[in-house]
């Protein structure tokens, strides 16, 4: 069973394609890092999965059902702007969101809020810090008892302590219920430690999609003399070159030729390699 499937999904805003021809599947139980630079299409993709935006082309399904302008009952969505009623207290907001749901657990929300240090139940939502608002929004998302959590930049406005608290809450939900999580961030370092699956988006397109360990095992970084590049076989993703030395990121590399050093890339350098390649495709003039 897949929690979420995209088939050739595209979204055009007037003349600009925010997302184009995206196809991927998120298996159930995964914690997915949806990464990419600002404006890559991460938010649009999540909003389409939440039924807020209709795809221009293709189709998105959550738990096998096409998303048709309506969020799946098993899916919860955290919007990037958090979209909470700021003039209500936390307690009233919990009641309000509960009233808007068929399946709801106030106990779950209170349990989560109880784990979070900075949230006063009787404070107006508008008076809370941005981080505390994010935490309230995540608690409310969990109140729907979701099987898939779509979180748009969940960590962007959290201080280190709140970040740790929040990740603990989300990961505990994964441990207890096998919840699938898709978290977006433009900072890979935010998600590196907690995710087991990566979906790298740039320029509206999927660049990398797969289990992090498998993706890493599939790639090699080869360092060797510039003159000898033809000896290397495999799919070249990107390269950086100095006068004498080439550093190549390869997928499905053949055995390393003599004179080349071979290492498994770390996730950061792999992502950087793909992003560099995507930039180069967009503006070939700048290619060196």
């Amino acid at each position: 069973m897949t929690a979420m499937t995209a088939t050739a999904v595209g979204k055009r805003y007037r003349t600009r394609w925010a997302v184009r021809d995206c196809s991927f599947a998120v298996p159930e139980g995964k914690v997915v890092a949806l990464v990419g630079p600002n404006g890559a299409g991460k938010s649009t993709l999540l909003r389409m999965a939440a039924g807020l935006v209709r795809p221009t082309t293709g189709e998105l399904r959550t738990f096998g059902t096409p998303v048709d302008g309506r969020i799946h009952p098993d899916v919860s969505f955290l919007a990037q702007n958090r979209s909470l009623y700021r003039d209500l207290t936390v307690r009233e907001l919990t009641r309000a969101v509960g009233a808007m749901n068929d399946r709801w657990s106030t106990d779950r929300v209170e349990e989560v809020l109880g784990l979070l240090a900075g949230v006063d139940h009787d404070a107006k939502v508008g008076t809370l810090s941005a981080g505390a608002r994010t935490q309230v929004a995540i608690a409310l998302a969990l109140g729907r008892l979701p099987r898939l959590l779509l979180l748009d930049e969940p960590l962007s406005d959290l201080d280190p302590l709140a970040r740790d608290e929040t990740l603990r809450v989300i990961m505990t939900d994964v441990a207890d219920h096998g919840t699938t999580v898709v978290m977006s961030s433009h900072l890979l370092s935010d998600l590196r430690e907690v995710c087991d699956h990566i979906l790298l988006i740039d320029d509206g397109r999927v660049q990398v999609d797969g289990d992090i360990e498998e993706v890493l095992a599939e790639h090699r970084v080869l360092v060797g003399p510039v003159a000898d590049e033809s000896a290397v076989a495999g799919t070249l993703i990107s390269a950086t070159r100095t006068e004498r030395q080439s550093t190549l990121l390869l997928r499905k590399a053949e055995p390393t030729p003599a004179g080349w050093a071979d290492t498994e890339p770390d996730l950061e350098s792999l992502v950087m390699g793909y992003l560099r390649a995507s930039r180069d495709r967009r503006s070939p003039a700048r290619r060196r």
Partner: peptide, 18 residues
């Protein structure tokens, strides 16, 4: 304008009922 409609639109209540 404030984007708060997103909160209601991502709960199970139907938009028409809201």
């Amino acid at each position: 304008e404030q984007g708060t409609h997103v909160l209601a639109f991502t709960q199970s209540v139907r938009r028409t009922r809201w």
